[in-house]
Write a protein that binds this DNA or RNA. Structure first.
Lengths: 124, 124
DNA sequence: CAAGTGTACTAAGTCACATAGTACACTTAG
DNA sequence: CTAAGTGTACTATGTGACTTAGTACACTTG
């Protein structure tokens, strides 16, 4: 399970959303798995249930999870939701590349940074 | 001169800061050049002078510009400030790469995105 | 001297975010 | 059936960042 950084300035509900999206991308949770209940996760994170509820609502609106009254929330198998996440990731990355280019970083350096980060992965 | 996007959610003062940093990186302004006055820039952007003043204070604290009472603000030639900007850019880009990797994007795709964006530049 | 400059300060308004508390409908285990 | 646990909805409140508004002062330059 991911952790929250209350000092980061990133809204808590967004951190929860991104945390579960990452978990799904990494295979730590899969379609059909039951999500922690709103109240239990709020307790675990020492956060208000309303904040978790908001995060779950965002995840559901994005098709990442679905919720059933009285039963709980579950990881969705919506393929279009997954590709939407990837599209968003590509878009964000493109913006990051453009920003780096505007500040004078060269393509070679950017490629090197990428390779360095992905080499870290191979070590595992 | 750059433009402001009031709908972006990015604080106006930050947009002004980033705008001038980009302008310096692109060579549109150089060390010694005089910055627009706080009041005139506020008028141009239809923004409160306090907001521009805040942006200039941030730029000065970062060594990007320096200000002289009664005369105006000027672009600094502080080399360490420039390298600090580059360091920040590298750090931001690394974070973007890590985020993209966590969401399942491969290094080959990221490299391709970079090359595509930098090819756009060559056309000019 | 007058105009333009940076700088500082208080006050107010707006907005997003988080918290607090309550309430209701539903499902499931007992 | 009952109780516990679930998602969901709602109002109210507090906080902090951001912006605006207005005023004021010290300084430089023509």
């Amino acid at each position: 399970m991911f952790v929250l950084d209350l000092k980061s300035g990133v809204p808590i509900c967004d951190q929860i959303v991104n945390g579960f999206i990452k978990m799904k991308a990494l295979g730590l949770i899969s379609a059909g798995d039951q999500m922690p209940s709103v109240r239990s996760l709020a307790l675990k994170f020492s956060v208000n249930p309303n904040t978790v509820q908001k995060a779950y609502a965002i995840l559901e609106s994005g098709g990442i999870i679905y919720s059933v009254k009285g039963r709980g929330s579950f990881v969705s198998d919506d393929e279009s939701a997954h590709s939407a996440v990837l599209d968003r990731a590509r878009s964000d990355f493109k913006a990051a590349v453009s920003a780096a280019r505007d500040l004078g970083l060269g393509s070679l350096e950017l490629n090197k940074i990428i390779n360095d980060i992905y080499k870290e992965e191979e070590k595992c």
